[in-house]
Design a protein around this nucleic acid. Structure first.
Lengths: 344, 344
DNA sequence: TTGAAAGCGATACCAG
DNA sequence: CTGGTATCGCTTTCAA
């Protein structure tokens, strides 16, 4: 009872070994099923494991050997956005099947938060890192390079990733939407989104969108970037603000489906008929779309699959399989019925 | 270059110390700002920390001392359910302000997954655990007791928690909804939810609901428990199944808002007018409700706050502050307009 | 103000 | 088949 293993009251391997009347090493071998012991010995050890309720201390294992931990640091901007929750779900489920765990970091869309989190999480010797976005602070980039662990950058496809990248080309997806809307002869188009300190995927979508619209002779007459979260209600009041500021708008492109849905509800509340009075287009294709009587014009991305793929690439790298540097998950424009159709 | 610290190429404290011309101990003291060194020494050490890009190995710190890690294991059933994503967001954000990290575990609503995850995560010497739900496998319970780390059970309020508990009384919230609906003279009521192997909060809500309805002379004529996820589309087709099986149903209570919203859309698609032809009630009060033109009858819970509170209780315990064993976050019935009003 | 030595819990390596 | 010893990176303790 009064043993040297007193600092924390946890049962250690040597206690198990002593109780079983064998050496630490023998107990260790049994625990790892590495072979090289008699059945009788195995029984004695396992019996003590049970009675003492021994749980291995993996910290010590990592610390001792050159094997790495089963932690994967995962940075996500925020979980209020369903899209990222799905990505995380894909990541964690897949990692779980390999016996790995996500160490979460919610960076709130700031590079500074990300940098601090990277510093901390690296100090825990993770096996790898999965980061949302391709932009990192210079110091973060330094740390990532020096850390010598695999890094998967997700969400934005990054042609020149730190290590590996999986996602979609957001510029292109915005561009396609711009081209689609202008093909329906929309000229005066508005945008409602949120603003962040740093460049991000939504910004790239907007850039691609503007380029397509302007290239087709249309105009993004008003861009509203709210200082708020990209969810339903900001979509609602953002639409109000946008329409108050520019009443000749024929169609609105939103940062995501949640905001678009808020816009849809605003229009309904004001008696504006979609798509006759105004067109509405979102992005991301949320699950809620599956039950709507009217299909929201949007852009589909397999968020869950994106997360799973990121985890697979990470695990592939960790097991020395050949892994592609870049994986494009792809997107699919959903014409929907919240913009006028080509026949009109 | 060819140094003993070769196993992994990471820079160690002793390398920093040697480069700075001091002993490990002195460098360690500087790094921790513990005092007991000259300004000159501090400068020399910090300079080497910068040039070498030293990152401390916290694994070794935890391992060496009796201080614990900054990991908090957090088990969540699934993130497809927005409600849990919000809870997790509350937890992780709050933990982050204290310099702690969540180690995630998605248990998919099974006790077996939870048990395996608990075993793994405990082996990483977390500072504490936050678990969703009050039910755990016997072995999980054993491990939790022996681990000697704080445990917060969330979601279900647990009057006799393993350690601490924060959540709401789901039975009561179901009961209140049952009483509310029967007070509107609904008699034949249906339920649509999903089934799980183990008892959970949704089951308790249903139990409370049935008790209230039956106590008021009504009847839960049909309970549909789908083998599916508790999201929009199962709410949609579940409603179809329910109404096909029991056409005299006047009102449906759903496991959550997402399913209720799916039901709402099903009714709309069939030309059923809510609440005249049928009443619809959800649970959880999702953000999407904030923009709906019609308020969904539901039950509001501050999911984010629940998560934050769980993290605060954990941190309180870790800093030896007095912490209440149980915290009831409370709920609020939302009458809404998807059931007939008392005047009708 | 500084440093040397012991030790945390496990594994690798080498002897028996 | 089994066990001793060194070791990982850091902190605690004790001495100088």
């Amino acid at each position: 009872m009064v043993d040297k293993a007193s600092k924390n009251n946890k049962v250690s391997l040597s206690q198990v070994a002593r109780a079983a009347g064998v050496s630490k090493m023998t107990a260790s071998r049994v625990l790892r099923g590495e072979g090289g012991y008699s059945e009788n010995t195995r029984l004695k050890v396992m019996e003590q494991v049970d009675t003492l309720g021994y749980l291995p201390n993996r910290l010590a294992t990592v610390f001792a050997g050159d094997q790495s931990s089963t932690f994967i640091g995962v940075s996500i901007p925020d979980l209020g956005n369903e899209v990222f929750a799905q990505v995380l779900e894909g990541i964690d489920r897949k990692l779980g099947t390999f016996g790995y765990q996500s160490v979460l970091g919610l960076t709130q869309h700031t590079l500074e938060e990300e940098e601090n989190w990277i510093r901390t999480v690296l100090s825990w010797q993770p096996a790898g890192l999965i980061l949302t976005g391709r932009y990192h602070s210079p110091r973060a980039t330094d740390m990532l390079r020096n850390a010598g662990v695999p890094v998967v950058e997700i969400w934005d496809l990054n042609a020149a990733p730190l290590d590996m990248s999986v996602g979609i080309n957001h510029f292109d997806s915005g561009f396609d939407m711009g081209r689609y809307l202008t093909s329906l002869r929309y000229k005066n188009i508005g945008y409602v989104g949120t603003s962040h300190d740093t460049a991000n995927a939504a910004t790239e979508r907007l850039n691609g969108f503007c380029k397509a619209v302007e290239g087709a002779g249309g105009a993004v007459v008003k861009q509203l970037c709210l200082h708020d979260t990209a969810t339903y209600y900001p979509g609602f009041y953002g639409t109000e603000q946008l329409l108050a500021a520019a009443c000749d708008i024929e169609c609105i492109f939103y940062q995501n489906d949640a905001m678009a849905f808020g816009g849809l509800q605003y229009c309904a509340s004001k008696g504006l008929t979609v798509p006759y009075d105004i067109g509405i287009a979102g992005w991301g294709d949320l699950p809620i779309a599956s039950v709507m009587n009217r299909r929201l014009t949007s852009c589909h991305v397999s968020h869950l699959k994106l997360g799973q793929r990121a985890a697979e690439m990470m695990m592939g790298r960790l097991t020395d399989e050949p892994v592609p540097t870049c994986t494009d998950i792809g997107f699919r424009l959903i014409p929907g019925s919240t913009v006028r159709n080509s026949g009109v």
